[in-house]
């Protein structure tokens, strides 16, 4: 419902060559990543599609968080990281020398494990993105703020207190605010790194509903440690173990008839 009020500027579906499959947003090819000597990601190959929710699951330390942070190159904020292989975003290699990382991050929004609003007012939090990208007109900013908050299904809760500090919100509201903050720069893809791990069940449910709605307009890649969550909201699921992709398929298949023994063991709770 709230997605209806989003602008018509949603990503226009490309004419896909393949009419059965949706077009590929992210294509990872032979990706390897090391933290110093620690080989954290091993030969990852993953194509991800438009307007789908792709879940990444696996035990802690399997590299799923590292992988999602590689998709917008946030992983490079850690010192001593080396990477080989390529990740194509909309057919362009994001590791290309001339590729501007700021541009990538403008097109690809990220929601973090812990809600991380800025110590500013709710309004300024949402307006932060548009402002750094040069949008100064107050009227436009107002519209963007309302639209984004509606898009993140939090408008009704905060519309009367836009000038209050964002830290006054509850954890669940903060996380939806962070999602709204991403929506304000109208990204193409949303990366979510365990977005509900710090939330209570009720807030988790709200965020999950939101994700399902957002899927209409955005491609979403979500890391989760919660398998039920992956089953509930995702279209595709990738299972990571020790830095490798063990299995990647439709979520239904992964959770009903996985082809790899290790996937089955993990899903049925034998380890992890």
């Amino acid at each position: 419902m709230s997605s209806l009020s989003m602008s018509t500027e949603v990503p226009v579906k490309k004419e896909t060559k393949d009419h059965v499959n949706k077009s590929v947003v992210y294509d990872t090819k032979n990706l390897n990543l090391w933290y110093g000597d620690n080989h954290a990601l091993k030969n990852i190959n993953l194509p991800m599609h438009e307007n789908e929710v792709t879940a990444i699951i696996g035990p802690s330390g399997c590299g799923k968080s590292t992988y999602i942070k590689t998709l917008n190159r946030m992983v490079e904020l850690v010192q001593d990281v080396s990477i080989s292989g390529e990740i194509l975003y909309r057919d362009k290699n994001i590791f290309d020398k001339n590729y501007r990382v700021e541009e990538l991050r403008t097109r690809v929004g990220m929601v973090f494990q812990k809600p991380n609003p800025f110590p500013k007012s709710i309004f300024d939090n949402i307006a932060y993105g548009p402002r750094i990208h040069g949008i100064k007109d107050k009227k436009i900013l107002k519209e963007i703020v309302e639209k984004s908050l509606r898009g993140a299904a939090i408008w009704d809760e905060v519309k009367d207190r836009l000038q209050e500090n964002a830290y006054g919100l509850s954890g669940g509201q903060q996380q939806r605010l962070c999602i709204a903050r991403c929506l304000a720069i109208e990204p193409d893809v949303l990366l979510m790194d365990e977005p509900t791990s710090a939330l209570d069940p009720k807030s988790t449910l709200k965020v999950e509903e939101l994700i399902k709605e957002l899927k209409e307009n955005y491609s979403i890649i979500i890391v989760t440690h919660n398998m039920q969550q992956a089953a509930r909201i995702s279209d595709k699921t990738a299972f990571f173990l020790n830095g490798e992709v063990i299995e990647y398929d439709d979520t239904d298949i992964i959770f009903s008839t996985p082809s790899d023994k290790r996937t089955e063991d993990y899903i049925t709770g034998r380890f992890g």
Binding site: N72, M74, K114, F118, Y128, G129, I132
Partner: peptide, 14 residues
């Protein structure tokens, strides 16, 4: 906190 910086970088800020 570093998460504030990350949030900003995540928005494409320089």
């Amino acid at each position: 906190p570093s998460y504030l910086r990350e949030a900003s970088y995540g928005m494409g800020a320089t």
